[in-house]
């Protein structure tokens, strides 16, 4: 089994920052299959389309999904209570390719921070750079710290941590790291990707797109890539991604 749609028991679904929820769901068949960077496609009662949410963390029995309320679907999701069951299709997509014995730098911006937690747990003493707009949106700092990461916190307005962009921190760390994994807003990913290219550091980025089936059948979540021979192509975030080599993505 690669993936399946099954019922999950909601263990927890609590607001951890302004409009951001931390949901833990239990299903032993599926949770153990999840790899860092993959996502879960959640059925929201009354909605035609499922909501793709990145996997923040996973163990043998649970998936942890940290999501932001952005519209009607995630609003409904945020009202689901502990003890209820929800239908989740998971684990989906191609996640991060994390090798042993390499020094990684994991970078998350805003709601792109959650998938970095599970990813950072796969390596020894990684550098983790997290960036947020302001102090009200800061999440998961305690979790990263517990996992023995070299953690950096930045905010755009300096209301918590360092007043800087994640790329300001990355610049200072470039000569210490072998590879970058990043998730966040497109301008941030573009800047990180450029900096990595200039310094010849491999960079994997996780992308978002409006999605349909979630498994690669309907072809709606297209991402433009440049092939080695220079030709343009559209691949799909749900199946070919969400994680891509930043060099092939056309921003």
């Amino acid at each position: 089994m690669k993936y399946d749609a099954q019922k999950f028991l909601v263990i927890k679904n609590e607001e951890i920052a302004s409009g951001i929820f931390d949901m833990w769901v239990e299903n032993r068949d599926i949770s153990a299959l999840a790899k860092p960077g993959q996502f879960a496609h959640i059925l929201v009662p009354g909605k035609t389309l499922r909501r793709p949410i990145s996997i923040c963390d996973a163990d043998k029995s649970c998936l942890r999904l940290v999501y932001q309320v952005k519209g009607e679907g995630t609003e409904i999701l945020s009202k689901i209570k502990k003890g209820e069951k929800i239908d989740i299709l998971a684990p989906l997509g191609r996640g991060f390719d994390i090798k042993k014995n390499k020094k990684y730098c994991f970078i998350g911006g805003g709601i792109g921070v959650p998938p970095m937690l599970y990813a950072s747990k796969q390596t020894e003493k990684p550098v983790v750079i997290t960036g947020f707009r302001n102090k009200d949106l800061v999440i998961l700092q305690g979790d990263f710290r517990r996992d023995n990461c070299e953690l950096y916190l930045t905010t755009d307005d300096g209301t918590l941590g360092r007043k800087a962009f994640v790329t300001d921190v990355l610049k200072e760390k470039l000569n210490e790291i072998d590879e970058v994994c990043a998730c966040g807003p497109i301008p941030m990913l573009r800047a990180i990707s450029q900096m990595c290219n200039e310094n010849d550091i491999p960079c994997q980025i996780s992308l978002e797109e409006r999605m349909g089936c979630g498994i690669g059948a309907c072809l709606v979540c297209a991402c433009e890539v440049r092939r080695n021979d220079g030709t343009k192509d559209y691949v799909h975030v749900c199946k070919d991604g969400p994680v891509f080599d930043s060099k092939e993505v056309v921003f």
Binding site: T48, L49, G73, E209, M211, G212, L219, A222, E224, K232
Partner: peptide
């Protein structure tokens, strides 16, 4: 065929709108 640039889908009340463009 490459199809249309994204986004290619939007949700509607009780449905969806798509424009994949025959990729």
């Amino acid at each position: 065929r490459l199809g249309n640039p994204p986004p290619r889908i939007a949700e509607t009340p009780s449905g969806i709108i798509n424009a994949v463009g025959l990729q």
